[in-house]
Design a binder for these strands. Structure first.
Length: 200
DNA sequence: GAGAAGATCTCCT
DNA sequence: GGAGATCTTCTCA
C-alpha cells in the first residue's frame, strides 16, 4: 500500500527549475467525492518571474497571476485559448514569482473516470497534454489557489518509480518570448509525453 | 471600453 | 500538417 503523504512545502519552496525537474516521477493525486485519481508526472515546464519573458509573472503582479507571487505549494490554474485550463504548482518564497506547469501525466488509478471526463477510450490521449489532464482530473478555476500540502482534494506524493527513468530537457512549447530557455523537462521514452522533443 | 493575443486541442485534408 | 474554435486577461486609450 502506498502511503498518501503529500509532499511538504519544503519541496516546492525552492528554485523553480529544480522543482520542475524533481517533480517528474512523482504522483499527482486527485480526490473527488471519494473517488481517487492518480497519474505519474512525466512532463513539466518551469516559469519564473521578472527574468522570464514567457512567464505570466514577467510584467508584475496581476489579478490572474497573483497566486504565483504567494507561498509555494499552491495550485495555479488559469484558463487559456477559450477552452482549456492549465495546472501549475507555485514555487519559491513569497513575493518571488515562480510556477511549474504540469504538461503531461501517465494515468494510473481511476482510468475509467478519466475516460468519462475526457469522452474518449484512448488511454494515450487522456492526459498527454496540459489542457487534457486538467479535464481528465476535473481541475478548473475553482481549484486555483488550492493548498497542495494538506493532502486533501489535490496533492503530490512520492512514487516507487523514483530514479528508474531518464530525464531530458528541451525548449518550452507554445510560447513566443523566452523560447530559448531549456526549461521543459520530460521522462525519456515515456509514451504519455505530449510531444517528442528535440533534447537540446 | 475595445482590441489583440494566448503556457491548447480537435478535426479535417 | 494546418486552421478554426472560443473566451479570458491584459494593455492602452
Amino acid at each position: 500500500m502506498l502511503e498518501l503523504k503529500p509532499l511538504p512545502i519544503e519541496f516546492y519552496a525552492r528554485d523553480t527549475v529544480t522543482v520542475a525537474q524533481e517533480v517528474l516521477g512523482k504522483l499527482l493525486v486527485r480526490e473527488l467525492n471519494g473517488v481517487l485519481l492518480e497519474g505519474l508526472i512525466v512532463e513539466s515546464e518551469a516559469y519564473r518571474g521578472s527574468d522570464d519573458p514567457a512567464s505570466h509573472a514577467y510584467r508584475g503582479i496581476t489579478n490572474r497571476n497573483k497566486v504565483m507571487f504567494g507561498r509555494a505549494g499552491v495550485a495555479y490554474v488559469y484558463f487559456t485559448y477559450g477552452n482549456h485550463y492549465c495546472l501549475n504548482f507555485t514555487t519559491e518564497r513569497e513575493k518571488i514569482a515562480g510556477a511549474v506547469l504540469i504538461r503531461a501525466l501517465q494515468p494510473l488509478v481511476g482510468i475509467d473516470v478519466m475516460k468519462r471526463n475526457r469522452g474518449t477510450d484512448d488511454v494515450h490521449n487522456l492526459t498527454s497534454g496540459p489542457g487534457k489532464l486538467t479535464k481528465a482530473f476535473s481541475i478548473a478555476r475553482s481549484e486555483n489557489g488550492l493548498d497542495l500540502t494538506t493532502g486533501k482534494q489535490l496533492f503530490v506524493i512520492e512514487s516507487d518509480r523514483q530514479n528508474r527513468f531518464q530525464i531530458a530537457s528541451s525548449r518550452r512549447i507554445g510560447i513566443r518570448e523566452g523560447s530559448d530557455k531549456p526549461w521543459r523537462f520530460y521522462i525519456v521514452d515515456n509514451v504519455f509525453v505530449s510531444r517528442r522533443g528535440h533534447s537540446k
